[in-house]
Design a protein around this nucleic acid. Sequence first.
DNA 1: CTGCGTGCAAATGCTTTGCAAAGAC
DNA 2: GTCTTTGCAAAGCATTTGCACGCAG
Lengths: 126, 126
Amino acid sequence: MSARATKQKSVIREALEQAHRPLSPQEIYTEARQQVPTLSIATVYRVVRTLLSEKLIVPVAVPGESDRYETQLCAAHHHHHFCCNDCHRLFDIPGCGLQVAAQLPRGFSLSRHEVMLYGSCRDCRA
Amino acid sequence: MSARATKQKSVIREALEQAHRPLSPQEIYTEARQQVPTLSIATVYRVVRTLLSEKLIVPVAVPGESDRYETQLCAAHHHHHFCCNDCHRLFDIPGCGLQVAAQLPRGFSLSRHEVMLYGSCRDCRA
DNA sequence: CTGCGTGCAAATGCTTTGCAAAGAC
DNA sequence: GTCTTTGCAAAGCATTTGCACGCAG
């Protein structure tokens, strides 16, 4: 069995921990490459997949775009996301204004939920 | 200028209107093909893109899967979605338990939001 | 040393596009 | 008849995988 500590893996995890928003594989790649210039995009995908299966990160989907990922630690402080219609960046939004349990149809059981807000971010709101 | 009424286009729209949940391109293809067996998947993608730009349908994203689409009419009855962790189908959930406006950071403006619930559907909840 | 993890390049698989033929008006 | 839409096959792209080498333990 395995789990060797490599520079690539730690740099990728740091990138995810320090960005205060979910990152796409390309964003992770660009960021982590500054620390390990030989890093390949394939490794980013592989490490992301490992982290996902270890439940250390959580995927966030946006229509028409690559999935983003954020640390589970980050996700533990329950919050949601804002997606800018213009620059397409994601932002963290603290807290949660959702009350849903009551509306779930009979026979369904809930494990988690995700809220995505769409609009213009402070930079793009011309 | 254009917008010709073709059998393909109407069958695709019907499939979207009659499914009471968002459909993926493959689901649309499978469904619409029952009416027009010669239908090609390329046409599904083309019609979907047209409908999107006409704002007649709305995209719904799920991590790791193809986007789904639902009619704007359907989306007008404000509601949200449930994604089954097992069968990966989407279901419509009536209503909305969200109160968010107050939590939006300064400088951000909101245009719409999407709530995705995850769990087990009635069929998969063994 | 041993064998997991990485980089590279090839392979996938979903989505898009070019083009000639079919169909709408 | 004219011009849009379609089907098919090829092209694009993001993501995954095979393989040989490098590095962690």
